[in-house]
Each structure stands twice: as C-alpha cells, then as structure tokens.
Amino acid sequence: MRLELIIAGFGGQGVLFTGNLIAQASMLADYHVTYLPVYGPEMRGGTCNCTVVISKKTIASPLVLNPSFLIILNLPSFLKFLPRLKNKGKAIINSDLVKPEEIDNLEVLQKKHKLYFVPVNSLAESLGKPMLANICALGAFYKISKIFSKQNFEEALKYMLGESKAHLIEPNLKAFELGSKYIEEHYQIR
C-alpha cells in the first residue's frame, strides 16, 4: 500500500494542519509517512499546499510529481494540481468553491479519476464552525482511504491540539463525522 497525497487551498484554510494531522494519524496506524509543507512566501494569503506520503514501506522521496490522491480546497488549486493527478487517482474537491457544473471537461476527468465533490464549507457552516471545513474534508479522506481508524484520528487530534486547545477536540470530531457521513451517503465506497 502506498498513497501520495497533496492537499492544496488558500493560506488560512488549514491545509498544513490537515496534512500534519493525516500524517500523524497514519503514523499511529503503523505506516511510514512523510509530511512536506510548502512554506515561506506562499504561506501568506496565496495558495498553500503540502505533500503527505503514506506507505507500508520506507519512503525515499517526500516530493511527489503525480499524486494518487488530492484534497482540493479552492479553484486555483484545482487548476494547478488536478492535471498532475495519477490515472485512476482520487480527489476530494470542495464543491462550494469548485462547482462541478462549472468544470468544462468534467466527464473526461471523471473517466480518468475518481472525483468526490464534498461541500466542506457548507458542512462546516452547518456546525457553526466555518473554520473546520478542512476537517470535514479530512473526514471524507478517512472514509475513502481507509488508512487509519477513527481512534487513530482522535489520538492524533488530541496530540496536535495539546492541552491548551483541548476544547476544540469536540467540534473537530463533529466536523470529521460530518465529512465522513457525507461520503457514506453520497458515494459508494467499496
């Protein structure tokens, strides 16, 4: 098993936190992982991305040209990274900011890849926590990738938030559930 994931969106959408969390949860599930943030000027305001490689074997390169999985949180990232997705690769796409009906070659893309459109902004807003759109996407990733368990996620979350932000665990778990449930209800996962 090997999964190469790129997460991309605006700075401030929690791209790096999401990647870090996925790497942490996957490590707890006994995988080799690498997490490589793109840092520096790109962090401020512009698009932001990170690469997570998850594998049963030792990972050499933390850099990935053609990922097998994408989490796309905004339109510029869709335009930049979808062309790099491997054949038969999977992508979770924030359908609040990248509307399927506005994608010209949607059918072609859907033949090549498995696309999951998840309105993560709306889901997070329904919780009254618009900041947690990234965690809704992470819930969807959990359901589709089946790499780590819910317990792994919870443990990773607690570790990452630490004691000072322990009050955020509950809403994060809710957002995670929402994302996961959305996939369950709208897509068939083998």
């Binding site: 870090n20 490590m27 080799h32 992982v33 997490y35 490589l36 990972i59 933390p62």
Partner: peptide, 9 residues
C-alpha cells in the same frame, strides 16, 4: 531545508 522542514516518524 527540505529535510529540516519535512516531518516523518
């Protein structure tokens, strides 16, 4: 910087 900033177990 890649080694410095990337995370792994």
């Amino acid at each position: 910087a890649i080694l410095g900033q990337m995370k792994e177990p």
